[in-house]
Design a protein around this nucleic acid. Structure first.
Length: 734
DNA sequence: GACCTGCTGCGGAGTG
């Protein structure tokens, strides 16, 4: 500690705690954060990978400051996206805060009422809270908040990257802004974030109105080494009962490679997660060894998930969790020996997060990808011929190594969350004028893209739906339906929550399944890695009883597609074009990739983006799904039956000539706006409060979120230009 | 092909 400059600026008690931890030195981000946090005159983004000491970087100086100021009320407000993370941080802060005599209070839906009552009577110290619980406090206890947070020193937001560009992130921005408005003071915000791309963008999201400058503290410590293997699997075109399915082959390999140590297997869907976990346990049973493979996903009960998290943390028994995104975020499970990824990851950012879970005690991170592809036959689709899954994985790994990550899409309208925040502000203050609402939420708050005229249309819509009503003196108050919405406990979440059935065995909670994918009596299912038969379906209580059984498949879960970014598709094209064959492919993957590259060149796709196959025209723009979707809707608008999947647009029952006459038509008409395109989409009700948003606004929001008109037109223009040049050449030769 | 997050107030049973 002797060479540390910052250390001496920390409070004696904090120093004492650091000594007791027997740290050799402070980490780079911890050292660098001390002065700006103590100065408390700007916002700060602290960015580093998991387990790099971000929490301490913020709390050590923040607690030092707190003791100096001894504020009347809550001193530090810590906001986390996960209840589990609040529980973790509560445990981690205990030791330090005991020495300092600062109280720490967790506050979320599972926290005992007695704990909350105590804090209500005597607000002080550090409050660890979720956005939803803070929403509830502002709405229901507004006057308490103005006293309790009167001398608040810091707001610390954990896992800030998880909020970027989302409805919930927009809610968080609004909550922080409303809190500052309530106490009429600017409070320094500290964001703890993974290093995923453009930190300037992160800073802009932390305080959209830029009333305080923002300092970015990024860890310079490089990630440990990375070992990669990409394993290819070929699904034969002719499958019979006896042949092993490709997934079984992958599961067999997972068993051989992973057994005996601890790993995470990411399988991209809950159904596949269940299938893999159950079949890996079967293999354990067959080999007469104790099971060490367990599923982990959002539909499993808290008890089942927590017991697996605890088992991973203890590191005593070999444990492999087959999981979805649930084990991507910062829940403390220690680190594992390796990561397995079955089928292609959805984004480079999520691949990075997953890798961060591997690499014990300076060991390299180990990533194995298990990628199935279908054997090519005369009927195979272009997607199979080009081996896009394998190539997408290679492109994503290339981008990962270049430290490129998908940027969040900011500056969205978030009308749904604007409904929630409007109702919440009116509920908090009783009655508010339209002008005051706009000034608070839009002019100075996070909804800055909503101008006064849009806001007027918005409020009219809420009035027509009886969510709000105007009193004689011009105040906006809650309407009958508005009261009902605000009173219901589901009001606090900004995101949609579809109804679900609870699954039980002998009265014990196992998990949930979506209500729109019903299970029937006597159906056999795989769930929680075990096999069950449905005993009864109680529609009234939304409860399904299970008994143990044999056989079965995982139930259906719902979900939306995930978008591949422009840059990923462009990198894929580079892989084909430059015939890149990475060293980390196994032999099967090598020959699969070679097929893809060979077919790409055989079709001359370096020079052509439009090809005819039978009565279908394929368009290959090598652009992200947002742009591809935009082009597809544009083509449909001009009478073509266009569909897209996996980055390729299929236009059925047409010819290249007809396709280009449609293209000519698109270009000779005035450019279509994203809002006009959205108006052609049959259903734009996606987000929670979309049903009460006037259609003209919903189309504006949907268009801005789903389409990239500029990129689509620029591709169509280039295509037309090349086509015309080519045609002229042909003509002149004649 | 398709992920994740979170929530109140109240009544009643159980415990010290």
């Amino acid at each position: 500690m002797s060479e540390s400059i910052g250390f001496n600026k920390l409070h004696k008690g904090v120093q004492k705690w650091i000594w007791s931890q027997k740290w050799a030195s402070l980490r780079d981000i911890q050292e660098e954060a001390i002065e700006p946090v103590l100065d408390a005159d700007c916002d700060i983004v602290i960015s580093a990978s998991t387990a790099a000491g971000k929490t301490e970087a913020a709390f050590l100086p923040a607690c030092s400051k707190l003791i100096g100021q001894s504020p009347d009320g809550v001193g530090i407000l810590y906001i986390s996206p996960l209840k589990a993370l609040i529980n973790d941080q509560y445990r981690r802060l205990q030791g330090l805060c005991e020495i300092l005599g600062i109280s720490v209070t967790p506050w979320h839906g599972d926290v005992l009422r007695s704990v909350k009552i105590k804090q209500r009577k005597n607000p002080n110290g550090i409050l660890l809270i979720t956005p939803e619980s803070l929403e509830s406090l502002l709405l229901n206890q507004g006057s308490w908040c103005s006293k309790a947070f009167k001398s608040l020193c810091y707001i610390i937001v954990d896992e800030f990257h998880a909020f970027l560009g989302t409805e919930r992130g927009c809610q968080l921005q609004s909550l922080m802004h409303r809190l500052e408005f309530l106490i009429q003071r600017t409070i320094p915000r500290i964001a703890l974030s993974a290093t995923l791309g453009d930190m300037k963008q992160v800073a802009d999201s932390l305080r959209p109105n830029k009333r305080l400058p923002c300092k970015i503290i990024e860890s310079t410590v490089s990630h440990s080494d990375l070992k990669i293997q990409l394993r290819g699997y070929l699904t034969p075109a002719q499958q019979n009962e006896e042949t092993e399915s490709t997934m079984d082959e992958i599961i067999g390999d997972l068993y051989k490679i992973l057994r005996g140590k601890s790993h995470l297997v990411f399988a991209n869907s809950r159904a596949r997660t269940e299938e893999i976990a159950a079949k890996l346990s079967d293999l354990c049973v067959q080999s007469l060894v104790p099971n060490e493979f367990f599923p982990h996903h959002g539909s499993l009960s808290k008890e089942i998930r927590e017991s697996l998290e605890a088992r991973l943390q203890k590191e005593k028994l070999p444990t492999t969790a087959v999981c979805t995104m649930t084990l991507e975020l910062g829940i403390d499970i220690g680190s594992v020996d390796s990561i397995a990824q079955v089928t292609s990851p959805h984004s480079v950012a999520s691949l990075r997060q997953r890798l961060g879970r591997s690499g014990r005690r300076g060991e390299p991170s180990v990533l194995r990808l298990f990628i199935p592809e279908d054997e090519i036959t005369v009927n195979s689709h272009l997607l199979d011929r080009l081996r896009v899954h394998t190539v997408q994985c290679i492109a994503m790994i290339n981008l990962l190594l270049k430290k490129w990550y998908e940027p969040a899409s900011l500056n969205q309208y978030h009308f749904s969350t604007l409904v929630q925040q409007t109702l919440s502000v009116i509920g908090q203050y009783g009655g508010v004028r339209a002008q005051q609402l706009w000034a608070l939420l839009c002019e100075t708050g996070p909804f800055s893209v909503v101008d006064q005229s849009l806001f007027a249309i918005f409020l009219r819509g809420l009035g027509e739906n009886d969510l709000i009503t105007q009193t004689a003196d011009g105040q906006l108050v809650l309407g009958y339906k508005g009261e009902k919405i605000v009173e219901h406990y589901t009001f606090y979440t900004a995101f949609n929550t579809p109804e679900e059935y609870r699954l039980e065995y002998n009265g014990k909670a196992i998990g949930t399944v979506p209500i729109d994918k019903p299970l029937v009596r006597e159906q056999h299912i795989i769930f929680a890695g075990k096999r069950w038969e449905v005993l009864f379906v109680d529609d009234e209580n939304k409860l399904i009883g299970l008994k143990t059984a044999k056989g079965g498949k995982p139930p259906k879960f719902s979900g939306d597609g995930l978008m591949v970014h422009d840059i990923v598709r462009q990198e894929m094209r580079r892989v084909y074009s430059e015939k890149i064959t990475p060293v980390y492919l196994n032999d099967a993957a090598k020959s699969i990739l070679k097929e893809g590259i060979d077919n790409y060149h055989a079709l001359n796709l370096d020079n052509k983006q439009i090809i005819q196959a039978g009565s279908t025209v394929h368009a290959l723009p090598w652009l992200g799904d947002q742009t591809i979707n935009t082009i597809t809707v544009l083509l449909r608008m001009h009478g073509l039956s266009a569909d897209c999947f996996g980055g390729i647009i299929d236009i059925r029952n047409t010819t290249i000539n007809d396709f280009f006459s449609a293209v000519k038509h698109i270009l000779s008409n005035t450019k279509v706006s994203p809002t006009e395109l959205a108006s052609l989409i049959p259903n734009t009700i996606i987000e929670k409060h979309d049903p009460v948003i006037p259609k003209e606004l919903r189309d504006i929001g949907y268009g801005a979120r789903s389409f990239n008109v500029d990129a689509a037109y620029s591709w169509i223009n280039r295509l037309w230009h090349n086509h015309s040049v080519h045609r002229t050449l042909v003509t002149s030769r004649l």
